[in-house]
Amino acid sequence: MKFKKIITTLLISSMSVLAFAGCSSEETDTSSAETDVPAEAIVIQIGFENSMSEPISQGLVEWQRLVNEQSNGALQIELFPDSQLGSKNELIDSMLLSEPVMTLADGAFYADYGVKDFGIVFAPFLFDNWEQCWTLIESDWYKEQSTLLEEKGLKIVSSNWVYGDRHTITVDPVNTVADLEGMKIRVPSNQIQSIGLDVLGATSTGMAFNDVYQAIQTQTIDGAENSLSGLYGRKLHEVAPYLILDAHVKNFTTWVMSADFFNSLPEDLQTILVETGKQAGIYNNGLQETADVEYLQKLIDEGVTVTEMTPEITAEFKAKAEAFYDHADTFGWSEGLYDTVKAAMGE
């Protein structure tokens, strides 16, 4: 995989910068003590599979702005949508070689990279609401998992980003969980999400998101699961006009990079990167909330048939999903993990 070389030609002369460590943009005081700006900017390339029209991409634009502003240009972010830098797995592999790249990833991927217990956050129907997600990411359990991941070479920079409820779009109608039986549904290429769909009766198929449209069009697969913004952004409804709002996963996403590269940054830039990541996450979440309503209406207006989840249908899906936890040994989970996580998320 070829990566664009790090841009290091931005020369900055005779400029002053605030001592930002620990400060948010709202707390910035322009009269603070001065420090020297590095002669060359440090550039982090963020590669992701989404199109720039999606809310999460606009959240990244805000992060890009905040990093540049708060570091006074010493730290820069470059954005590469539509898998331009490679697949998620390729990007993560490059991080393990200390490349200065970042991508969005989730517990299911971290499980595949050695922190097995992290995978449970992508279990189907684990969360009932977003508050449980935010309680979990602030818990000691989550911090422990993040530390274990860092020991594997991957640093989670930010976790408070809503990617969205993940729903399923298909070529034929799905009105009950039984209708998924035998359907080939695209999932990201990881074990957790694959089994999460398989237990519902579907046949999971791992592939890059930018390959999905053609795969549905050529009848290689029968549908895909993703957030409303992701489904609409890829125009999948043009080839798969049926949507069930199953919300099988409440997908909070994380931004991850090389632990070695992160630790090589000056401490003030580490702080800026983490703090602005949180600020941009809050910005993203506001966009996502508004966009979900708008995207659903767009899908309906453009001919999609939508199935809402009644309490009866939800109960059917949840009952079917219970088989997922029978795979605890397959996933290599710690004993009693489900109960531990339920307690950590406030239940």
Score class of each variant (00 low, 15 high):
Met309Cys: 07
Glu131Met: 06
Trp141Gly: 00
Asp198Arg: 11
Glu294Asp: 15
Val61Asn: 02
Asn72Asp: 12
Thr340Phe: 04
Met15Ile: 07
Phe80Lys: 06
Gln270Asp: 02
Gln145Cys: 04
Gln191Pro: 00
Thr340Ile: 12
Val306Cys: 10
Lys2Phe: 12
Val239His: 00
Ile272Cys: 05
Trp134Glu: 13
Phe3Ile: 03
Asp179Glu: 07
Gln145Lys: 15
Asn190Thr: 07
Glu312Pro: 00
Val101Ser: 07
Ala33Val: 14
Ser227Val: 11
Val171Asn: 06
Leu96Ala: 04
Asn129Pro: 10
Ser87Glu: 09
Gly153Met: 02
Glu151Asp: 12
Gln191Asp: 13
Asp339Tyr: 01
Leu337Ala: 05
Ile282Trp: 08
Leu287Asn: 05
Ser71Arg: 12
Ser51His: 15
Thr28Pro: 00
Met257His: 05
Ala215Cys: 05
Ile156Trp: 03
Phe48Pro: 00
Asp329Val: 12
Ile216Met: 14
Lys342Gly: 02
Leu228Glu: 01
Val61Lys: 05
Lys235Cys: 04
Asp260Pro: 00
Ile156Leu: 13
Val293Ile: 15
Thr271Phe: 07
Glu267Trp: 00
Ser87Ile: 11
Gly86Thr: 11
Gln217Asp: 12
Gln132Tyr: 03
Glu335Pro: 00
Val187Thr: 13
Ala323Asp: 10
Val239Cys: 02
Thr305Ser: 13
Gly303Leu: 10
Thr103Lys: 06
Asp179Tyr: 04
Met207Ala: 15
Val187His: 06
Pro81Phe: 07
Glu275Tyr: 04
Lys155Phe: 14
Leu269Met: 13
Thr170Met: 04
Gly230Met: 04
Leu228Ala: 05
Asn226His: 08
Trp130Ile: 06
Met95Cys: 14
Tyr325Gly: 05
Leu149Arg: 03
Asp198Trp: 02
Gln191Ile: 13
Ala39Tyr: 10
Ser16Phe: 13
Ser229Asn: 13
Leu154Pro: 03
Lys235Thr: 02
Leu273Lys: 04
Pro38Glu: 11
Tyr242Asp: 03
Val256Phe: 01
Ser227Ile: 11
Pro266Asn: 09
Asp268Ala: 01
Gln84His: 07
Pro188Cys: 06
Ala21His: 11
Ser334His: 08
Thr203Glu: 15
Trp161Asn: 10
Leu97Phe: 09
Glu69Ile: 04
Phe118His: 09
Leu11Met: 12
Ile137Arg: 08
Asp326Ala: 14
Ser258Trp: 08
Ala321Trp: 03
Pro311Thr: 10
Glu294Leu: 11
Glu40Cys: 07
Lys4Gln: 12
Phe331Ser: 01
Asp268Tyr: 13
Ala39Phe: 11
Ser264Lys: 08
Thr276Asp: 03
Phe118Glu: 01
Ser87Ala: 14
Glu275Gln: 10
Asn226Cys: 08
Glu289Asp: 13
Gly22Tyr: 11
Asn160His: 06
